[in-house]
């Protein structure tokens, strides 16, 4: 059986809001490593990988590895019924085809349980080798989201280039072009406001803005975002979930035909 009690229930709500538009159905895996998910979008352009480590839960009990197939839209509907400050507990009996979400208000004066049907999902997991990236950019997540949103009103694709100058986001469309350059900036009041650029080699990659904008739905999960880029390889866009784990998106680039 499985019982996971998450005091910061709002976090699970945010996780679902950040992936439900990208992925329809996914297996949530529960093991000693943590509560995790790996799923691809229907066009096979993006993969989301989530890890919430056991230490982040007030109670993390799963006596064997369990994989639970869930429709993410349905799961999001259920989690929307939880308050942002609620404690959320996931429960599943061995061999059951349902999962129960229990929502407790912080003052314990309201307790709700929602039972959701599980589904069988055949999903193959991808192996992501450790890579040495040409460039790694860490910046405020809200700034990155703002840039992706702004550029998508001009064009459909974004070219992300890292040079000595900084990181450049460019687009081109029928009405014109747009370029946003962010330079390294560590002279900030709070560390999460810094832009840090580690460059081993200059790199330039093109991505669909529709996908980039979809990934930025994870912005409420973290003040910062990390972009790991290598020529000709998918980008890794990572939002760290404080003291618990991460949500990572692997996004395939556009390539020359």
């Amino acid at each position: 059986m499985l019982e996971l009690r998450l005091v910061q229930g709002g976090l699970l709500k945010k996780v679902l809001e950040s992936i439900k538009d990208l992925v329809n159905d996914a297996n949530f895996d529960c093991s000693a490593t943590g509560f995790s998910l790996q799923a691809m979008d229907s066009s096979q352009v993006a993969v989301v990988a989530l890890l919430l480590r056991p230490e982040g839960f007030e109670r993390y009990w799963c006596d064997r590895n369990i994989s639970m197939g869930m429709n993410l839209n349905n799961m999001a509907k259920m989690l929307k019924c939880a308050g942002n400050d609620d404690i959320i507990t996931l429960k599943a009996e061995d061999g059951s085809d349902t999962v129960t979400f229990m929502f407790e208000s912080p003052t314990q004066d309201k307790i709700a349980d929602f039972e959701m049907k599980l589904m069988d999902i055949n999903s193959e997991r991808l192996g992501f080798p450790e890579a040495d990236y040409h460039a790694i950019v860490r910046m405020p997540s809200s700034e990155f989201a703002r840039i992706c949103k702004d550029l998508s009103s001009i064009g459909n694709t974004v070219v992300i280039s890292v040079t000595k100058e900084g990181v450049r986001f460019s687009t081109r469309g029928d009405i014109g072009t747009a370029n946003v350059v962010c330079r390294q900036n560590t002279a900030v009041d709070k560390p999460e406001e810094a832009t840090i650029i580690e460059m081993n080699e200059p790199v330039s990659l093109t991505f669909g803005l529709r996908y980039m904008n979809s990934l930025t739905k994870a912005t409420p999960l973290s003040n910062t975002v990390t972009l790991s880029l290598s020529s000709g390889l998918p980008a890794v866009v990572e939002y760290r979930i404080a003291e618990m784990g991460y949500i990572r998106f692997y996004l395939a680039p556009k390539i020359e035909e």
């Binding site: 096979q44 080798p129 998918p234 390539i255």
Partner: peptide, 14 residues
């Protein structure tokens, strides 16, 4: 011209 690549062309299934 550019075309959209897929994730499965970069990473192998385990």
């Amino acid at each position: 011209t550019q075309k959209q690549s897929t994730i499965t062309s970069f990473f192998t299934k385990r």
